[in-house]
Each structure stands twice: as structure tokens, then as C-alpha cells.
Computed example of a mutant assay.
Amino acid sequence: MSAHSSKAQNVLVFANFTDLLAYDKKGIKWRTERLAYDGFKITQINDVCLSGEYWDIRNETSQMFQVDLASGINLGQKIEL
């Protein structure tokens, strides 16, 4: 598990192995759908979005994802369950 903050969006984002959970001063702001099967990592956070990558076991390649910090919407790669 890891934690990342954005002063611009005033959120604290927690990452586990498959999804993200963001808190603001009122409590839970958003939670993403599953972004990965396992073990993704955050590679960048800026004023607008959080980016990361994960290993896709289906095709054995590294995949990228990007999440909007204001809404929690996945702007990048979506995984199919």
C-alpha cells in the first residue's frame, strides 16, 4: 500500500494492489474500479491526474493507466474482468 497527495486537488490517494481510494477533508471522495490484476505502481502525480503502470498477465506486457484526481475516473487503459 502507498499514499500520494495532491495539494492542487486537496486529496490524499491510497493505492493498494488493484485500485485507488481518495480522501478529501470531508472523507472519501472517490474510489476507482479495479485498475489492475495485481501489483501496480504510481509513476506520476500532478495537479490534474495520477498515472501509473501495472503488469498485464494476459499478454505479458506493461500497461499504463491514468486517473482524474477530481473525479476518480480512469482516463486510460481499462481492464476486463
Rank of each mutant, 00 (worst) to 15 (best):
F65T: 04
N59P: 07
E53D: 13
D38V: 14
Q9S: 04
S6E: 11
W55I: 05
T61W: 11
K7F: 14
A70H: 04
V13R: 00
D38A: 13
E80N: 11
D24F: 05
G52F: 00
S6Q: 03
T32R: 00
F14K: 00
L35A: 05
G39E: 08
C49Q: 10
K29H: 05
A36T: 08
K26M: 07
K25Q: 08
W30R: 02
Y23V: 04
K78N: 12
G39M: 10
K29W: 11
L35E: 06
D19F: 13
V11I: 08
L21P: 10
D19S: 12
Q9F: 09
I28G: 01
L21N: 08
N59R: 09
L75H: 04
L20F: 15
L20D: 06
G72E: 10
L75N: 07
S62H: 08
Q9W: 05
R34L: 09
H4S: 09
I42V: 15
K26Q: 15
A70Y: 05
Y54H: 12
W55D: 03
L20E: 09
R58L: 12
Q9L: 05
A8F: 12
C49W: 03
K25A: 08
I57V: 10
G39C: 07
V48M: 04
G76W: 05
T18A: 07
K7S: 14
K41R: 06
L75A: 08
K78Q: 14
W30L: 06
L81S: 01
K41S: 07
E60A: 09
D19V: 01
Q77E: 13
K26N: 11
E60K: 03
V11A: 00
G39N: 07
S5R: 07
F40N: 00
W30E: 07
F40Q: 00
F40P: 06
Q77F: 13
G52A: 04
I73D: 13
I79S: 01
T18C: 09
M1T: 13
R34T: 06
W30V: 12
T43S: 10
L75T: 09
Q66Y: 05
L21H: 05
I45N: 02
K78E: 10
N74Q: 08
W55G: 00
I28W: 01
